[in-house]
Simulated assay, not measured.
Amino acid sequence: MIDHRLHVLRALAEHGTVTATAAALHLTPSAVSQQLRGLAREVGAELLRPEGRRVRLTPAAHIVLRHADTLLGQWEALRAELARQNSAARGTLRLCGVSSALAALAAPAVTRLRQSHPLVEPLITEEESAECYRLLLAEEADVALVLPGPEAPPVTDTRFEQSPLLTDRQDLLVPDGHPFARRESVELAEAAGESWIVKKHNNDTYPLLTAACAAAGFTPRVTHQVKEWYAVSALVAEGLGVCLLPRIVPLPAHPVVRVPLCGGPAPVRRFLTAVPRGTAAHPLTAAGLEALHTAAAAHARGPEHRL
């Protein structure tokens, strides 16, 4: 019902080049160019202008994109309203998100979902937040658990419906025997001289760390670039550096100590749910969102309320 060429134009706006757009849509670059030329003829306006090896969207292209977002949102709302004619949510629900959110929130949510909606089959994919948004746009995911960051679209982006899910405080993780390990709490600024362990690329944690440290008045000196929490904890245990450990992440079985941070502003991670605009009311998506918010509320109340 919605002209596929609009999806191609949206993908080009997202990825920036014809080659990247073709890879994302599993098309050839020539097919992408051909479809965009056809769309330009259809709307009677120039949509692209060459700019070196790249192309630039014209003002007319941005007008088309704005209306395309509205059309696609209305189409999804139509599908959701029709789906609500059925009494039960059914089908495959594709969830994506960062690893810690999948472990702490998606896993118990899926258990609840299977109990309350036995006709729903959940599928889970781990990705960083920027990739989760891309999966939503490519119609390869239905619900994403994401963290706002420099590479994420703003909450005002009309392509998505985004809602707060959970605020997750972060603590300082230090080796057992570190001077901070005997403290009830420390201010983040006191750790300005420490070595830090965090992967800089393709990692939502890094911009959160740099933002928190900037607010505390320093730039962290990153010595080891490791991403997976168990490996990070192992390096901290060996005295190779410190890190910020989210409360949502269990304390690994290493000789390390989680030290609460005091003072302000306290570093936190704010999880959101994101879905393509118009889909939140679809019975399948709505069931998934309800299960996630129930899991987040139980997590916030404490271990005794979790599955």
Score class of each variant (00 low, 15 high):
253 A>Q: 14
248 I>W: 01
142 D>M: 01
153 P>E: 10
137 L>T: 10
270 R>W: 02
221 R>C: 11
189 A>F: 03
218 F>Y: 15
211 A>W: 01
206 Y>D: 00
132 C>V: 06
265 P>R: 08
37 R>H: 15
30 S>Q: 11
112 R>V: 00
17 T>S: 15
286 A>C: 05
94 R>I: 12
95 L>I: 14
223 T>E: 15
118 P>M: 10
272 L>V: 02
2 I>N: 11
154 P>I: 05
31 A>Y: 05
82 L>M: 09
105 L>C: 06
208 L>N: 00
101 A>H: 04
20 A>M: 00
240 L>H: 14
71 L>G: 01
152 A>L: 00
79 R>H: 13
87 S>D: 14
15 H>P: 00
279 T>G: 04
231 A>W: 03
265 P>G: 08
241 G>E: 04
245 L>Q: 08
41 R>G: 09
278 G>K: 02
48 L>T: 06
262 C>M: 07
118 P>Q: 11
122 P>N: 07
258 R>C: 03
217 G>S: 09
185 S>W: 11
78 L>M: 13
122 P>E: 02
101 A>G: 14
171 D>Y: 07
44 G>H: 09
106 A>K: 01
96 C>L: 04
14 E>L: 05
25 L>A: 07
184 E>T: 11
64 V>H: 04
286 A>N: 02
221 R>H: 15
276 P>R: 15
130 A>R: 10
250 P>W: 13
28 T>R: 12
297 A>N: 08
145 L>I: 14
127 E>C: 07
105 L>G: 02
273 T>P: 00
279 T>N: 01
168 D>T: 08
4 H>L: 09
281 A>N: 11
149 G>C: 04
269 R>C: 04
87 S>A: 15
176 D>E: 15
261 L>P: 00
36 L>I: 09
180 F>M: 06
296 A>P: 06
32 V>N: 02
63 I>C: 00
83 A>V: 05
113 L>D: 03
180 F>L: 03
258 R>K: 10
10 R>E: 15
88 A>Q: 14
28 T>Q: 12
213 C>I: 06
284 L>Y: 02
129 S>A: 07
156 T>R: 10
152 A>Y: 00
